[in-house]
């Protein structure tokens, strides 16, 4: 298991890998990739019981990327975790006939369910968590949603059923970067006060005020694991496009592909952040 400082450093390397994948494929959802990175890093390298050698183990933890468009970040994580080859993903992402498409596809190792259309992950996660409880398996189920995604009504059906069945083996992490493709979430379809909403739905809610902090996320997951009788929602307050001033907090970077100047600036910034991490 990796420690906080190592994970922090790893998250910056994974951002660099993500950038490479996007540039190789000629497109991707860079803004959300960068905001969700610490969430995925903490999950895959410390929190979750998953690994390539136990991909079919019924006692493994389950992960669903409901905001499936953050696939490039997910590829970077799956590669670093040994499920996929970074070289292969980089050379074939989005290419003709490639298995590496722009959303999760479960013919690939390590990916449980297909997503892409928003609002699907949470109900599926409820089903996974119910099955684990029926079979008395220790599996925990983690689902990452976007914040703009929560305008899809199916999520709220999932929040109702998760609470109804007291699924304390279920954890929903919301990548609250406050931006979606058309602009701010509060301007497009207001979501605040999210914590009150989720609490009212019967969920244990943890605000990770810095959702890009490995340490805060670690503490939030610990709370989720200790919570009994209710599912936990972690509202991870993240920064869209995190890692470079070129793209941070800019809705236009939802799926913008950097031009050569932007690319070199972003790469410099990410490298600098990585090197600034204590090793």
């Amino acid at each position: 298991m990796m420690e906080t400082t190592e994970l922090n450093k790893l998250s910056w390397q994974l951002r660099l890998d993500t950038l490479d994948i996007i540039m190789a494929g000629g497109g991707g959802h860079i803004g959300g990739d960068m905001s969700v990175m610490e969430i995925l890093t903490e999950l895959y390298f410390r929190e979750m019981q998953v690994s390539p050698d136990r991909a079919e183990d019924p006692n493994r933890d389950y992960f669903i990327l409901s905001k499936g468009h953050s696939m490039e970040a997910y590829y970077a994580v799956l590669c670093a975790r040994g499920f996929l080859s970074l070289e292969d993903v980089r050379s074939r992402f989005s290419q003709f006939g490639s298995p590496y498409i722009g959303h999760p596809h479960n013919t690939l190792p390590g990916i449980e369910m297909n997503s892409g259309s928003l609002g699907h992950g949470l109900p599926v996660a409820v089903g996974l968590a119910l099955a684990a409880r029926m079979d008395q398996r220790p599996s925990r189920v983690y689902v990452v949603t976007g914040d703009g995604e929560l305008a899809e009504g199916s999520n709220w059906e999932g929040f109702m059923s998760g609470a109804m069945y007291h699924l304390d083996n279920l954890c929903c992490i919301i990548d609250r970067n406050r931006l979606q493709i058309s602009g701010g979430t509060e301007d497009v379809m207001a979501l605040d006060n999210l914590k009150d909403k989720l609490s009212a739905f019967g969920w244990q809610v943890v605000d990770a005020m810095d959702g890009n902090s490995i340490e805060e996320l670690h503490a939030a997951f610990e709370t989720a694991r200790k919570t009994k009788g209710a599912p936990t929602a972690i509202i991870a307050h993240t920064v869209k496009g995190r890692g470079s001033s070129v793209m941070e907090n800019k809705a236009s970077w939802h799926h913008h592909v950097p031009n050569p100047e932007e690319l070199s600036q972003i790469r410099r910034d990410l490298l600098q952040r990585k090197e600034a991490c204590a090793s």
Binding site: P58, Y62, E112, M113, H120, L122, P123, V124, A125, V126, G127, L128, A129, L130, A131, A132, M134, D135, S139, S154, G158, S161
Partner: peptide
């Protein structure tokens, strides 16, 4: 969605 999750887990 729940049915699919249950099925994914072997049900």
């Amino acid at each position: 969605g729940i049915a699919a999750g249950l099925a994914k887990a072997g049900k």
